[in-house]
């Protein structure tokens, strides 16, 4: 018991590192959306919706911040039986 608890006590930094990674992966996904990602999502959605019928809920925009490059990942789910939508009239 003493050896096990001793080892566990020593190893708290890796746990902190792991907790941070999980926390931030979540926060970056949720909070990051509030600004740039939301704007991008809306504009990309509007762009696609001009040509294709799709469910607005099935569009995912993710941003990953890296050392040198950041990547923007856009995932659009288009139903199988979709057809090109008629261009939406300019309102």
């Amino acid at each position: 018991m003493s050896l096990l608890s001793f080892l566990r006590r020593r190893g708290s930094a890796p746990v902190a590192h792991q907790r941070l990674q999980i926390l931030l992966a979540h926060e970056r996904a949720v909070i990051g959306q509030s600004d740039l990602i939301t704007v991008l999502r809306e504009e990309i959605l509007a762009g696609i919706a001009k040509h294709v019928r799709m469910d607005p809920e099935k569009v995912q925009v993710k941003m990953e911040r890296g050392d040198v490059v950041s990547t923007l990942e856009v995932e659009v789910e288009i139903p199988l039986n979709t057809r090109l939508a008629a261009p939406i009239g300019k309102a």
Binding site: R9, R10, G11, S12, A13, P14, H17, L20, R65, D67
Partner: peptide, 18 residues
Amino acid sequence: RAKRGEMLRTEDVLDILS
């Protein structure tokens, strides 16, 4: 403490914050 694994190391923090 960082060396003993009791505190986040510099590279851990840099890895996260970039």
